[in-house]
Each structure stands twice: as C-alpha cells, then as structure tokens.
Design a protein around this nucleic acid. Structure first.
Lengths: 209, 209
DNA sequence: ATCAGCACTGTTTTTTGATACAGTAGTGCC
DNA sequence: GGCACTACTGTATCAAAAAACAGTGCTGAT
C-alpha cells in the first residue's frame, strides 16, 4: 500500500525537518509549512502515515515522531583509510593512515577491515580505478580468481590471484600491464581480499578509458 | 575548556537518548534518569553544556537540544538506498527505499543525497557495474560530460550527459549500447549527478568484462 | 576569608504541543 | 444515492515542557 501524493509530501517534510534541525517537527510546524488552518490537518496526516507504517507516533510526547524505515540497521563502523604504503612497513602501520571513514560493514562480505587507496590503472578493466578506495578484508588466504591485496617483497599491489598448480600469478586487468609471475627468490604474501570499492568522482570528472 | 565529570554524564545521556529514541530528551527525562528532585538541575546542566559549546539550546521549543557540529561529524550520515524505480513514481518515494546506509558525506562532492542501485552493464567502461550503488547528488542541472541520473518519460537511467548546441544525448559507456538521443516528444529531466560509486564484491566474485 | 563556580532542591508561571470532537467538501466506487 | 476515504476547517482542553526565581551546600582558587 503506497502513500498518496499529499501524504508523501508530509513525510518528506518530516524527513527534511529532522535532517535540517535534528528534531522531528511539531503539529504546529507542519501546519505552518503547509499553510493549514487547523492542527487537526497535521494530526490526521500523521495518523495516516502511522497506519501505513512509515512513521511511529509516541503518544503524549512532544515531537514524538519516529521514522520507522530510517531507524533500521545502522551499525556504522569506522575503518582506517590506508594511503600510499611505504616499502618495508606493515600495511596497517600508523603512518599510512590517511583518514577514518564510516561504512556499513554488513554491506560487504566477508567483513571489511580497512580501506586501501588504489594507485594506478592496472585494474581498470575490473572496475577498479586510480584513486578508488578498495574495501579490504584482512586475510592471508585467497582462492584463485579473487582480487587480492598482495605484497611482493616490499611492494603492495592489487591484482587478481591466479594459482596454476604451485605457481602463483598476479593478473592485472589492463591490456598494458603484463601478468606478474612470482619468482622463487621473491617474498610473497597475501595481505587481504578485496570485498568492495568506494569511488568519489571529483567535481564531475569521469574516469574514462 | 573541558567538561566536568557530571556534565559529561549529562552529555552522554543526551547522545544515548537520541540514538535510542531518535529524539533529544526533555528536562523531565534527564531528571528522572539522574534521580534529580528538581527540573532546574537539568536546566542548569544544559545551560552549562551550551556555554561549553557542545550543545545548542533552542529557546522555547520542546526537546530543543541540538548537538553541535563537532560531535555530528563523528556519526555518519545515513542515506536511503533506492532500488528498482517504478515508472511514474518520484525517485525518492518511500516504496523505492531498499535500505539505509551510512556513508561519509564529506568524502563526496557535491553533497550526496541518496544511493541508486545500478541496473545493467551500460556504464561498465566508466567503472560503473551492474549492482553497484551510485552515490547521487540530487539536482536538476548538470554540465556536458558529467554522469547523470536522468529520466526519459518514466524510465530512470544512468548515462553520461552530452550537450551539442540544443541537442541532448545520453552516452552509454559500453560499445554494445548506442547513444540515446532525446526526441522532441519525450519528457526529459535530470534527477541527479553521480558523485561516486560503492560496490560490494559478492563472495569473491569479480566483475570482469 | 571570600568569592566564583558547580551541583543541586523547591516552587511557580507560561508556552508549547498533543489530541479529541464536531463539521465540511471532494473523489471514486458499486 | 449512499458509503468509504482523503483532506481539510474550527474549537477546545489538558498535559508536557521550558524557564524563571529564590535558595542551600560544597569545593577550590586568590
């Protein structure tokens, strides 16, 4: 059952009012915004919205309007954003922390541990662009085909993992970058598994190929 | 100048109350929580907190307590996730709300208003894949070259905007999709501007081309 | 020793705000 | 035509809530 046009307007006003002032509106504030002549107009609309289940009215309390949809499942978790990783230092070292960013952990699986700023275009065909924040689950294990954050000697890189028998390869997703084969003399470790990407377009700029 | 132990407790109670009920507490609620005998105890504490600049009191309004910006920055802003948009209904209508997700608004510019779930592969060469959440700034205006959320008649689509003189074209970024030219008889509106992308890899699955 | 500031009690006044009751007008439906 | 439903006007009442005023006792600084 969906809202009528007028009910939607009332609902939008409540949301807007809460965002701008931090408080739900009173009946009187709804009345003055919509130029109603009677507080009962607002009251009836609120009752209708409650009947539709989109808000909850707390009887007898001032501004007792609660949004039922918005209140659900917000367990924001703040993850560290890792910037340029300097050689020879562990990836989560304090000096690599660029910022802290809240994300919804339940949106990613497995559980994310940190965000890594992507440097370079080598994974562009996998939809991972320069400057993107890669959402990473910290783990030393990964299956062939997964996108991983890997360390070769002291270099951190993001590539697709490919295991052929005992040989490990890191596949770039950009025709200009050849696959990387791990030599016997190289130190290799998987730092984490890519579980998501967060990108911000800077000023309407588009990452095109 | 920092808060006293007692003032901190009052402040914590306000934050906790707002998180659990969605409303700031009244003086009476502070009184009953701290077992005060007088409403003035609460009133004086609120005045002290306001003097310290951590809250703002809206004079004469019920529950008129606002947490100042310093504390607001810590908690992420929760944006609605818009799923499949049904024809003929406004994009932000309640029935399209799929979920609510906290994000860091300052990470995106201009200010994001909602998240739109991307349907289809038409923008894959711009790094926007099927199932991605597009971070959208709601605006009816956009410049040529920007990626927009547009409505043609009753269909919502994500494309790159191209203006050539008076003609408007929507460019897909996938060689299999031709550009869309807007006819004179078609209703066209820009719903918003893409300011970012959030993607979750489902179970190590990689979006490859 | 005194004074400012904190942390309250106790009381009163005045708004603010919720909510009930009684109606009116318009629409779509069967 | 009658009924249900939306969308209001207009009035009234009472509880919830803000906020002022007048105090008390304590602590720590000058």
């Amino acid at each position: 059952m969906s809202l009528t046009r007028r009910q939607q307007a009332i609902y939008d006003f409540i949301v807007e009012h809460m965002e701008s002032t931090g408080l739900p509106p009173t009946r009187a504030q709804i009345v003055s915004h919509f130029r109603f002549a009677s507080p009962n107009a607002a009251q009836c609309h609120l009752k209708a919205l409650e009947k539709h289940g989109v808000i909850e009215l707390l009887s007898g309390t001032a501004r007792g309007i609660r949004l039922t949809t918005a209140t659900k499942g917000r367990s924001a978790m703040s993850l560290p954003v890792i910037g340029r990783v300097s050689a020879g230092r562990p990836i989560l070292a304090v000096e690599h922390h660029e910022a802290q960013m809240p994300i919804e952990p339940s949106h990613f699986s497995p559980k994310p541990h940190f965000l890594l700023r992507v440097d370079g275009e080598s994974m562009i065909d996998a939809g991972i662009c320069d400057g993107d924040l890669l959402v990473v689950h910290k783990t030393p294990e990964a299956r062939s085909g997964q996108i991983v954050v890997a360390r070769i000697d002291d270099e951190i890189t993001v590539k697709q993992l490919k295991r052929t028998g005992r040989r490990v390869e890191l596949i770039a997703h950009n025709p200009n970058y050849p696959p990387i084969r791990i030599g016997r003399d190289q130190e290799f470790a998987i730092e984490g598994l890519a579980v998501g990407v967060i990108r911000a377009f800077s000023g309407g700029q588009v990452p095109l190929r």
